[in-house]
Design a binder for these strands. Structure first.
Lengths: 213, 213
DNA sequence: TCAGTTGTGGAATGGATCGTCCATAACGTA
DNA sequence: TACGTTATGGACGATCCATTCCACAACTGA
């Protein structure tokens, strides 16, 4: 019975994300978003409430996507390929940062830095996301341990936390100015130093090793 | 001949840092800083130019301090204690984040997240800071290699980059919501996985190892 | 003591921005 | 086809904030 919306909500959220990603929360004006989406302010406010709610929506979707990417690379598969999955994931994350020529960084990190301290919703959602990533990593590490690629004496929980830290750290040092090649090397090195079972040959941590995967 | 300043510049910068640290660049009003420092706006602008210049000054000092802390923990000393110095530094950084109950994070990370993309001065200064930290870490890793605590086949440059990533990553995941104990464990784990020379016993990476240093 | 110079602090300014309002448009239903 | 409901989008109001301005204070050197 009512007049239907003339816009696609998903599309509008994408555009809004683009703006928040580029210029942060405080740095993005609602007028920018209106212009970027082609919507008028009335429609924008009518559909999403206010700037804060709109950002929460975007941030939430981003966090979901971050976990989905990890799930796509990590979840499931034979134990024999668990190490390759881990490697693929860590390298993918490094590549993402390395190829981010505009230096926008990750909206998760950006949002957390700007808002987590004063916005419980942002803080809570980011914590959830970290937990989900940790779980995925831990599962794969356990699989790699079963297959003998990682020393089973090591605590998978701890190695998962280490890898998560490396992944998020790559994002941080990348934004702080390290060059793309250095970021790729960090991913290599982090995977190479994972403890191998007694008597099994470690991957090289020396200069210019062949990167596998 | 002129009227002398009634305030201590260092003290004003400290207060300003406090404000920027707590609420970020965009989130801090010059009125806040005026109130926090007790200065009038005229004095503030007369002494520091404008908000941007004031922040650059604060940011610059912070970066200097970050490197100084690292120098205090890392620079110099006998090779035999290089590993202990590395351990001390990494644990100190973890402890800093762990004890940051207000979740303010590090002003370096916060400033970079908010401004690096659009402010070359911030981007440049952060890159300089990363380079300085890398150099310090590389030097200590080389020392530890000479003493046989780290496999000398490994590239010290790469291990330094990895440790820097872990240190910055701890800051990131801490702000993202990981609990303090997890952060301390990450520091432990990162140090434990550093490659040891052939035939030398690795530190435990298993559950609840005794943390040394 | 006086003049010149700089510091001080609060009022004023100008611009930007969030959110609202409202006249109008578009749709479904009776 | 007429009506009720929701969508639209641009103008508007109120607020906020960085910066400037200015009258006055404080100090030094002559």
């Amino acid at each position: 019975m009512p007049r239907p919306r003339a816009f696609d909500e998903r599309e509008v959220l994408e555009r809004a994300r683009e703006r928040f990603w580029a210029t942060g929360y405080a740095g993005t004006r609602m007028d920018d978003i209106a212009q970027a989406t082609g919507l008028g302010k009335g429609s924008l406010y009518g559909a999403f409430g206010d700037k804060g709610k709109l950002f929460h929506r975007v941030f939430d979707d981003w966090c979901t996507a971050v976990v989905e990417v990890a799930e796509g690379r990590l979840a499931g598969g034979p134990d024999a390929e668990a190490m390759a999955r881990l490697s693929g994931y860590v390298h993918l994350m490094a590549e993402n940062t390395a190829s981010d020529t505009e230096r926008r960084g990750c909206l998760l990190a950006k949002g957390v830095a700007e808002l987590a301290q004063h916005d419980p919703a942002v803080a809570g959602r980011s914590a959830e996301t970290m937990t989900a990533l940790l779980t995925l990593l831990r599962t794969e590490i356990s699989a790699a341990q079963r297959h003998g690629d990682i020393d089973s004496a090591a605590d998978p929980e701890r190695l998962a936390a280490l890898l998560l830290t490396v992944v998020r750290g790559i994002e941080a040092v990348g934004k702080a100015g390290l060059d793309p090649e250095a970021l790729r090397n960090i991913a290599d090195t982090a995977l190479a130093v994972l403890p191998v079972p007694e008597g099994r040959k470690r991957l090289a941590t020396g200069r210019s090793p062949a990167r596998e995967n």
